[in-house]
Amino acid sequence: MGLLSPIAALGRAVLSGLAWIGRLSIFAAQTVRHIFTPPWYPRELGHALLAIGWLSLPVVGMTAIFTGAALALQIYIGSARFSAEAVVPQITAIGMVRELGPVLCGLMVAARVASSVAAEIGTMKVTEQIDALVTLSTHPMKYLTAPRVLAATLSMPLLVAIGDIIGIMGGYLVATQRLDFNASTYITNTVNILDAGDILSGIVKGAVFGFLIALMGCYQGMQSGRGAQGVGRATKTAVVAASVLILASNYLLTEVFFSA
């Protein structure tokens, strides 16, 4: 019995993980159905676009500019070892647009949005506001989940695009002000290296990450346990799960877009 207990524990963990994936998949499918079927709540969508998209701009911008600047500096230092300093604009642009822009933007928005959505919906659950919605003939998933997931899916590609531009600008500032790169050459090299596939991959990644972030926030909020501890746990789980899903889906999307 003692020998088998680790195997039993492993089995329970696997079953529990599979059950979680199953519940989340059903929740995601229901969310998509509610996004495409009436009634729609445009005011809720507007509020969600403002809260998720517009208000995330400062944190995305700050993250992108410092990341771009540090990236340009590191590439310069690394490439100087084999006299290839000229590749700084190209590598910075590709690194930002393909990977760092979407992933860091996704992680920052996950920290900001998944937590606030999970806490808000979790609090609504423990204070019976979700039950109140039902008694007022309003489907909680239509009213709470669908607008937030749609807003995040629509606004994340824009945030990623803006983050990419600001990140490249960060690299440009370091290169031209500190590393004595020629400004027009830097811009020309950046523009020439990027193609439509690079931009598209970032946009698609942004949309997928946005969907996952809001979905995890809403799902954990709806599953929240009782009291402050329950809401706290839901918030933490939403951020952790959204971050892990972003990193995992980023790898899969990179394979899809760029594998030979």
Binding site: M124, E128, D131, A132, T138
Partner: peptide
């Protein structure tokens, strides 16, 4: 109609929007 124990008012809406919630939907 239902009065909940903690009132269960929607924090993000004005008081009148809470009262008129059902009258603005469905």
């Amino acid at each position: 109609g239902m009065l909940f124990q903690g009132a269960a008012l929607f924090d993000s809406l004005h008081v009148w929007e809470n009262v008129a919630f059902r009258l603005m939907r469905g």
